[in-house]
Design a protein around this nucleic acid. Structure first.
Length: 398
RNA sequence: GGGUCGGUGGCAGAGUGGUCAAAUGCACCAGACUGUAAAUCUGGCGACUUACGUCUACGGGGGUUCAAAUCCCUCCCGGCCCA
């Protein structure tokens, strides 16, 4: 009778999960039928959420689907301080303005994954900004400098002679205190958050609360094989257009297909395993597995219709090399120099760059390679397709 | 507060008077090969110029010199050690 629920609890505790503290305790509570308060904090450090954030967000959704209360915490105070967990270098302090700007779209973006209407959305500046030295001192009392400098990334920086400033030490205190204020039963976060997540467990008992359980999710690798990070431009953003999402997925390397399917979608694990085995013995072409992944992601972030449209577009344009039908138009004047047009349309960074692209054979008009850097555009080329590199097309219109 | 080392292109990091628009790696762009894969290979990667070439750049400002990323002064910022 409870088989289905047991399976879902098991998946909740394992899929994309690196570690649970304390697993048995949390399992019992999940089985008890109590409604748990499950917290996830996201700092508004960049204007876009990327699919790395989907891992904990999907985990949050799993909790939500089991009937628990989820709390989405927007770190408008912590975002200003800046977390160092995933950084090799000191993180600059953001201005309140920058944070506010980034924050604006966050909740809507997260709403693509979780049911915002059923969630509690909170902003930690509301309580953190009110703390004075006395309170902060009290929180700081719970931690030692030693624990902090033993953290792997801090230690590395210290060893490398890089600066670690005192403000950074404050971050875990703040995150831990968030859990106190919110009376969190569970906190979800990436494995790189370990120290911060545990801070809640340290602080809560000091305020007469039971320590929260912690669910640490796997980190995913960026589209270029390095850690996914906004500053490296190897992300797929929740705000990306359906076309971009599809295209970016198709350009990842094969090894990432299974991790992405596991962590960024809710394709049943049985299917994921089938795909994994299928690719191993070559019954399934990696390209097709990738298309499945791309469609799943587009469906999650947009909708199923877009997913089908983009699949067709992709096959037409790239597999078959056909020039797409719905090309952006580009108005030009008669006799305008090609290099100027390229710069104006944002297809080249500068005239020098435009010339280079022509010299290297990267520019085509109506499928004919342009070789002359002095090329100008004339009326005969009305409605021709200008192609820059592999994937940029513009229809020339006079 | 004292001592000492350092601040170079998107990042990391060479370069210590001319041959430096600045090695090398990463990122990025174009081409080849492909499954728009990845990996690999080739070319490129400040701006302007068809081109010869010109201009702007090595933390900020000032100076020495025919000539400065390189030397001097000063200011700002940081590391380390000592207190």
């Amino acid at each position: 009778m409870h088989h289905d629920r047991d399976k879902r609890i098991e998946e909740l505790l394992t899929r994309s999960v690196d570690e649970v503290i304390e697993r048995n305790h949390l399992k019992k509570r999940l089985e008890s039928g109590d409604v748990l308060r499950v917290k996830l904090g996201i700092d508004p450090t960049s204007p876009h959420l990327h699919i790395g954030r989907m891992v904990p967000l999907l985990k949050l959704r799993d909790f939500q689907k089991l009937g628990h209360k989820i709390i989405l915490l927007v770190g408008n105070a912590t975002g200003v301080i800046g977390d160092t967990s995933d950084k090799d270098a000191e993180r600059p302090m953001l201005s309140h303005e920058a944070v506010a700007e980034n924050m604006r779209q966050y909740v809507a973006q997260a709403g693509k994954i979780i049911d915002i209407a059923q969630a509690e959305v909170v902003y930690n500046a509301e309580w953190l900004d009110k703390l004075g030295f006395k309170e902060i001192g009290g929180l700081a009392d719970a931690f030692s400098v030693h624990e902090f400098i033993q953290r792997d990334n801090i230690k590395r920086r210290l060893d490398a002679g890089k600066r670690v400033n005192l403000r950074e030490v404050l971050y875990p205190l703040m995150q831990g205190y968030d859990s106190v204020v919110l009376r969190a039963d569970v906190e979800v976060g990436g494995t790189d958050q370990r120290f911060n997540l545990l801070a809640g467990r340290t602080l809560q008992p000091r305020f007469g609360q039971a320590p929260q359980d912690v669910v640490m999710t796997e980190l995913i690798i960026g589209t270029d094989g390095r850690k996914m990070s906004s500053s490296w431009g190897n992300t797929i953003n929740l705000t990306d257009s359906a076309r971009d999402v599809f295209g970016k997925v198709m350009s990842i390397s094969d090894e990432l297909i299974v991790p992405y399917l596991t962590h960024c979608t809710r394709v049943p694990m049985a299917d994921v395993h089938t795909i994994e085995r299928g690719m191993a013995d070559e019954r399934i072409h990696p390209r097709d597995a990738k298309i499945r992944l791309a469609k799943e992601l587009v469906t999650l972030l947009h909708d199923a219709t877009s997913a089908n449209i983009e699949e067709r577009y992709f096959i037409e344009t790239f597999s078959k090399g056909v020039i797409p039908k719905d090309v952006e138009t580009l108005a030009v004047t008669d006799g305008e120099a090609l290099v100027d047009v390229l710069v104006r349309a944002g297809l080249a960074k500068s005239k020098s760059d435009a010339r280079r692209k022509i010299q290297q054979g990267g520019i085509k008009i109506s499928d004919e390679k342009i070789t002359d850097v002095m090329q100008t555009l004339t009326k005969e080329q009305n409605n021709s397709i200008l192609r820059v590199g592999k994937k940029n097309f513009r229809k020339i219109v006079f």
